[in-house]
Computed example of a mutant assay.
Amino acid sequence: MSLRNVGWSQQHPTKPLTDPDDGPIEVDVEMAPLIEALWAAGHTTIMSCQDIGESILTGGTALPEHLWERNGAFYLGMAWLKVPADQGPRLMRVWEPLARERRGEWLAQVPIEGGRLCGFASIHFPREQITRAADLLA
């Protein structure tokens, strides 16, 4: 998980990368090639996790403890990427072949807070497709 928000803690092994916008950050080892491919393609990343279900189940997210079991089980085996909202649709077009292979397992959303769309998109997808997602950006 690359960490930029309060309330999150590292749950997976990491690799140090240098974010073009923010300098040195720690990124989950399995997500590192995807994050580097995103940056090389001119995208911005906000946060990421190689298995958000594992992170939830072990208390590594900002979710209240009474939601860990239900949400962790739902997202187990799913990678997570948080990007600026305007980049979400472009990325989903690039990754459409992967999403077609695993219908119903790719989820992209822009949350609503205070009656307005947030400035970020959350993309959840099968952890086992991380490498292929990076390859499609090349």
Rank of each mutant, 00 (worst) to 15 (best):
Q109L: 14
L3P: 01
M31A: 05
T14N: 02
A32K: 02
E26H: 06
H12Q: 11
A121C: 15
P64Y: 06
E65T: 10
A40L: 12
C49W: 04
G42M: 13
G53E: 06
N5K: 09
L136R: 15
F74S: 00
S122T: 00
G59C: 10
A134P: 04
A37M: 07
Q129K: 12
P89R: 08
V94P: 06
E54H: 11
D21S: 07
D19R: 05
D22R: 14
D28H: 00
E30M: 06
C49F: 05
K15A: 07
T14L: 03
R93L: 14
A108W: 08
D135C: 00
L98W: 10
S9K: 13
L57R: 11
V83D: 10
P97A: 07
G7Y: 03
E54F: 09
M31P: 01
R116K: 15
A73R: 14
T131H: 04
Q87I: 02
I123S: 01
R90H: 14
I46K: 06
L63A: 14
F74Y: 07
Q10A: 04
Q11M: 02
P33L: 08
Q87N: 05
D19V: 06
L107V: 13
D22A: 11
R103L: 13
L17I: 09
A62G: 02
M31N: 05
K82N: 12
A41N: 11
P13K: 03
T14W: 05
M92C: 15
K82L: 13
L34Y: 03
T14H: 03
M92Q: 14
R116D: 06
A79H: 03
L136M: 14
V29Q: 13
P20N: 07
K82Q: 15
A108N: 09
Q10F: 02
N5I: 00
E105H: 14
A99D: 01
W8E: 07
Q10W: 00
A79Y: 03
E36N: 14
A133Y: 05
E113H: 11
T58P: 01
E128N: 12
D135E: 15
R103T: 08
L63K: 06
T44N: 12
R93M: 12
D22C: 01
W80P: 01
M31E: 04
V27G: 04
C118I: 00
W39L: 11
M1E: 02
E26N: 09
H12I: 02
R70W: 01
A32F: 04
V94T: 15
E36R: 14
G42R: 13
Q87M: 10
I52H: 01
G104Q: 13
T18N: 09
P111Y: 05
G53R: 03
P16N: 09
A37V: 05
W106T: 08
E26R: 00
P13S: 04
S2Y: 00
A138Y: 10
M78R: 12
H66Q: 11
P13E: 06
N5S: 08
R93C: 04
L76H: 09
W8M: 02
E30D: 15
E30L: 15
D19E: 08
D135L: 12
L81Y: 05
R103E: 13
G88N: 12
R4L: 00
R93D: 14
Q11A: 04
T14Y: 05
A99P: 02
A73K: 15
W39P: 09
I46T: 07
